[in-house]
Design a protein around this nucleic acid. Structure first.
Lengths: 341, 341
DNA sequence: GTCTAGGTGTGTATCGATACACAAGGACAC
DNA sequence: GTGTCCTTGTGTATCGATACACACCTAGAC
């Protein structure tokens, strides 16, 4: 920049103004500066230097607690991120996915992120990344928990919603199964009896599980009867495969409450492949009311991950608007569940 | 940082080393520094300052030429970005979506992006963002064109692939239609006769259109007979709606070559709804061989957007590895097209 | 003729770190 | 006793811009 200034015969400040406040400089001086910049191949102000001086980067960080590809593979994450992206676009701010690998160095990666704020996609209670986020001192927000060191949390009351949808899913059922997310970061695939479920480290998984269990035990049934099948990955294929196994095994399920529409849609495929009737032989519920839920007639919990993503983005940009409340959900009953009575 | 150094009774450099090269400092000094940092609430080195000094940010920029949400809405973009994200994760680098709105200020946004390299998702020939990308002087790469000021381009030979799949799609057809992407950034929805197609500004659209047209005229048919239906948005609903209109109109199509699997799957739905047989009454082809193509029996062009995304990321990180060649595609014939003869 | 206002240009300090070269001191060999 | 090496700490220069206050000059008002 100094060279440009010299060549144009002006001071460095004038060059700076040409780029940052074009009105501040006379047309003639600006023309000379631009000519000199072109001649010397000066590409304009260096972004990092500008960020340092201005104390503003112009980008919002998102921490996924998973490898980056997850952002585009997991449909729920993608819906959430689309909401974040909407706000970023409106505010003219970039969106940076902070790289996470699962290694201890992740903490370091968060600390190095060049961003103006951080959004954390829901993670486990014991994820060290949460500390790193809090340590940055940047405006930050956690989606759907856990609560950690006073970081704000945006999300619905998963437990209440789970209990409500559970009551619908388990109507008339005798061998119910929950098709769920991983319990902890090990992400093991497993099938557990309801009284054998150990500590659940992911708050979303925990709350939904507890709510569904409450729905079952609230009807006077023993907790052990409600089984939990854990899908390591949230996609329809996983849901289909696991459901197929369950249907082929003893104690064929007659009600499946899934923690996502993707898992539920996979379950529906498996049920259809097994030649069983829905909801007659097997009732199925999902979670999210994604686009595919309605055509499939899937009973589900409607919440807007996109709206939640947008709300998180606003909070992390230091401009909290209307944040959807913890009660921003409802059960949408369609045709994959039984009517009471 | 200076305050921390003073409090710990060491120099600023020692503090710096504690964070950047922990082995370089004695345990005792490091402990004092950490204590002082904790006491003063020093969050560790400032990322922007560090980036400025080191000349490295640790993040890769992606320019989409569309509003950010597009990244998560458009399935092709998402597949491509998943590939970019894979590489970023492996390299421990972040992924920044550069905000684009369609306004002239987009150029400015690219210039301000704090990144180490840039990947441009295919855009129109006249997109000013390309100039801005070249001006940054950062390592950059354009996916699938256009070629611009020597920026490297990664992608397949769309025209050759289109001609190949066109020959399959149009076998035995008399009223073929191309279900295509927008022609220019106006993104108008329209239905054109083959000889009335004006300049096509998106290279991908242009190449696929030209290839498909070649396939038709190469069979000795007049160009005007091949119609082009433009879908503003790449999703199944658009493909379905537009196909439904075509099927209801005069000159009911008997072959539909779509520029994406999403559009093709929508077209299949519309054909099924109209009670027509595939491929008997209507043949259909897609593009990409996405996950849904195989179960649907869709004939399509197989290419790996994910692999292309990964290759682009490596190039933009200044570490070009094996870039998939322009011939990294093939036609996968399934059951939605007719057999010749 | 003087005073005020507004438009332009400049200088200095600063944003917060790190690269690099160097110095001090101890351990060790011979 | 001295030469070498290694560990550990320090100082200085620098990365590349911008905020802010100030100086200058020209108009116009009265």
């Amino acid at each position: 920049m100094r060279d440009v200034a010299r060549t144009a015969g002006v001071s460095a400040m004038t060059v700076s103004y040409v780029y940052s406040q074009p009105g501040r400089v006379s047309d003639e001086a600006a023309a000379r500066v631009r000519a000199a910049a072109h001649e010397l191949g000066y590409p304009g102000p260096h972004p990092a230097a500008r960020s340092l001086r201005q104390g503003r980067v112009g980008t919002l960080g998102v921490v996924l607690g998973e490898r980056l590809g997850y952002a585009f593979d997991d449909p729920q994450a993608a819906r959430f991120l689309a909401g974040v992206a909407d706000v970023c676009a409106a505010e003219g701010v970039g969106l940076t996915l902070v790289p996470i690998t699962g290694a201890p160095s992740d903490v370091e990666r968060v600390a190095r992120a060049v961003v103006d704020g951080l959004v954390v996609w829901t993670t486990s209670d014991d994820d060290p990344v949460l500390d790193a986020v809090a340590d940055t001192g940047l405006p930050a927000v956690v989606h759907a928990g856990p609560h950690h060191r006073g970081l704000p949390v945006v999300g619905i009351d998963d437990r209440a919603a789970a209990e409500a949808v559970g009551r619908v899913a388990f109507t008339g059922a005798r061998r119910p199964v929950v098709l769920g997310f991983p319990l902890d970061r090990a992400r093991d695939r497993q099938l557990l009896d309801g009284d054998a479920v150990g500590p659940v480290r992911f708050p979303v998984t925990r709350h939904r599980w507890e709510g569904l269990r409450d729905a079952w035990t609230g009807a006077g049934r023993p907790a052990a009867e409600l089984r939990l099948a854990v899908c390591p990955v949230n996609d329809a294929d996983q849901g289909e495969a696991l459901t197929a196994e369950l249907l082929a095994g003893a104690d064929r399920p007659d009600a499946i409450a899934a923690m996502s529409d993707e898992l539920a849609l996979g379950a529906l495929r498996a049920v259809a492949d097994a030649g069983l009737a829905v909801p007659g032989a097997v009732a199925v519920t999902g979670w999210d009311d994604s686009d595919a839920a309605e055509p499939a007639g899937l009973t589900t919990v409607a919440q807007s991950l996109r709206a939640q993503g947008a709300a998180c983005a606003l909070v992390a940009l230091g401009r909290p608007g209307d944040v959807p409340g913890r009660d921003a959900w409802r059960v949408v009953e369609r045709t994959t569940t039984r009517r009471p009575g």
